[in-house]
């Protein structure tokens, strides 16, 4: 089934927000193709009647009491920020719309 094209890799890079280079596109296209070819084997045994497992431990209903816990100060929150202004994280202009 796989056979992933260079264009598809470019689309994936865009979805994943990776400004990959032209050379990388070539390399990744080949490698992803090879890997996908190998991992497609899961389809051989993944029959309809087998339930998927999303969690390794069978826990349910793990809740926290609705009680305030101390968090970070503004200074701590911003300590690692590449840029900050007026107590906020400063980021370049945003092109996309809010969702």
């Amino acid at each position: 089934m796989p056979n992933i094209s260079r264009d598809e890799v470019a689309h994936l890079a865009k979805l994943a927000r990776l400004a990959v280079t032209e050379e990388e596109l070539d390399v990744f296209a080949g490698q992803l193709d090879q890997i996908l070819d190998a991992v497609a084997a899961v389809g051989e045994v993944a029959k309809d009647d087998i339930p998927p497992t999303s969690h390794a431990v069978p826990l349910t209903n793990v809740f926290r009491a609705d009680e305030v816990r101390p968090g970070l100060t503004q200074q701590q929150a911003l300590a690692g920020a590449p840029a900050a202004e007026e107590g906020r994280f400063r980021v370049p202009r945003i092109l996309g719309e809010e969702q």
Partner: peptide
């Protein structure tokens, strides 16, 4: 550059090839 461009450029500069490979594999 816009926030979106800075994100993509920073991720490209900050991650090595194996990480990028797996991110794209997983995205796919």
């Amino acid at each position: 550059h816009s926030a979106e461009e800075v994100m993509s450029a920073s991720r490209e500069a900050g991650f090595g090839p194996e990480v990028k490979r797996r991110i794209m594999l997983g995205t796919y």
